[in-house]
């Protein structure tokens, strides 16, 4: 079993991946879809942040700003019947799996039109009809549940894949150890995506991990493992393509570490100080995944500025309309509060 550190290799040989990506034969449509997906997430998150300031969101709101490349790059390879299990910072995963901005925003507004019909909020987004099997307020269980989806899919002889998204905060948790081991011994069709944004809430990963490398933990469990720059959507996209294909082919699970950074506070409205410097935040903003991909598309003549501006404008309007829809949506009926405890 191998741990491939694509991020380190790219630093050593800057042109290596570019050549690889040409060989991969990506279409312009795929590239535009990746850009569009990242913009959907960014604009929805910025709308949610504004809505939080306006008091329209009643509980927590953990945004995904700065990490959009990961959900976009991974979910581009998933079908509606693949199962995604996510964590508390899950809006991006829901959107990338196909939940509409309307349903995400309405859920955070507590409306019956939300994807969880108002029972979930920011941390409990569900749309199992398209394989969003839930985001979670507890760190770790998504890893086990993705392994479980893999167990189902293997038992049912299907080529579906279970995918877990989790942060660096999950990898020092027992669920990571147990889940990766179980997935490995049964060669489950699963993908474990660690979004290493370097802080578990406000505790630095470098402090909290005896081994501060996530990617090299994969081979310890007998699992293929890749580390990529999580702010490089094409790097994520290529690594996920291979991992999803491996799972579909019955060749077992993959651990994919994506190194990234969240540029907003852990949760909207929280004091974002005392654990990281403003200089560090500003430095990471220069590595913004959307800015980088925007520039890459122009430089590689995969899009012109007008095309991208048109996408931006279209999605801006979509998200504004979604917020309006959410604000005008009805509340859930209180007399339904005991529904759905049992089947």
């Amino acid at each position: 079993m191998l741990h491939q550190d694509v991020q380190a290799e790219t630093k050593a040989r800057p042109n290596a991946r570019k050549q690889g990506s040409e060989e991969a034969g990506r279409t312009t449509e795929e590239l535009h879809a990746l850009y569009r997906q990242m913009i959907v997430i960014r604009y929805t998150e910025e709308q949610l942040a504004r809505s939080h300031q306006m008091g329209l969101i009643h509980g927590a709101c953990h945004t995904y700003v700065g990490e959009e490349a990961i959900a976009s790059g991974v979910c581009a390879h998933l079908r509606a019947d693949d199962a995604v299990f996510s964590t508390h910072r899950g809006h991006g995963h829901a959107l990338a799996k196909g939940v509409s901005p309307r349903e995400v925003i309405a859920e955070l507004f507590g409306r019956v039109t939300g994807c969880s019909q108002g029972r979930g909020g920011s941390m409990h987004l569900f749309k199992p009809e398209i394989g969003l099997m839930g985001t979670s307020g507890i760190v770790g269980p998504c890893i086990l549940q993705a392994a479980g989806a893999g167990y189902s899919f293997k038992l049912l002889r299907s080529d579906k894949v279970g995918v877990a998204f989790f942060g660096d905060g999950a990898v020092n948790n027992g669920a990571f150890h147990e889940g990766l081991n179980l997935a490995s011994i049964w060669k489950l069709p699963a993908l474990f995506v660690c979004e290493n944004n370097q802080y578990a809430t406000e505790v630095p990963f470098a402090y909290a991990a005896g081994n501060p490398n996530v990617g090299n933990r994969g081979p310890i469990y007998g699992m293929e493992s890749v580390t990529v720059d999580g702010n490089d959507v094409l790097a994520v996209y290529e690594a996920a393509r291979e991992a999803v294909a491996r799972a579909r082919a019955g060749e077992g699970p993959t651990l994919l570490e994506c190194r990234t950074y969240r540029t907003r506070a852990h949760s909207e409205g929280m004091r974002d100080a005392g654990y990281r410097t403003q200089e560090e935040v500003e430095e990471w903003k220069t590595r913004d995944p959307i800015k980088r991909f925007h520039q890459w598309l122009l430089e590689n003549q995969e899009a012109d500025a007008e095309t991208l501006a048109a996408i931006d404008a279209e999605i801006k309007a979509t998200v504004e309309e979604a917020a309006e829809f959410a604000r005008n949506s009805p509340w859930p009926e209180p007399d339904t509060v005991s529904d759905h405890i049992f089947s």
């Binding site: 199962a83 549940q145 392994a147 479980g148 989806a149 167990y151 189902s152 049912l156 279970g162 147990e178």
Partner: peptide
Amino acid sequence: ISERGFVGMCAGAAMTGT
């Protein structure tokens, strides 16, 4: 001997058709 692991795994399995 991995009770948390296999219970969490079975939760995911139960959510996905088994």
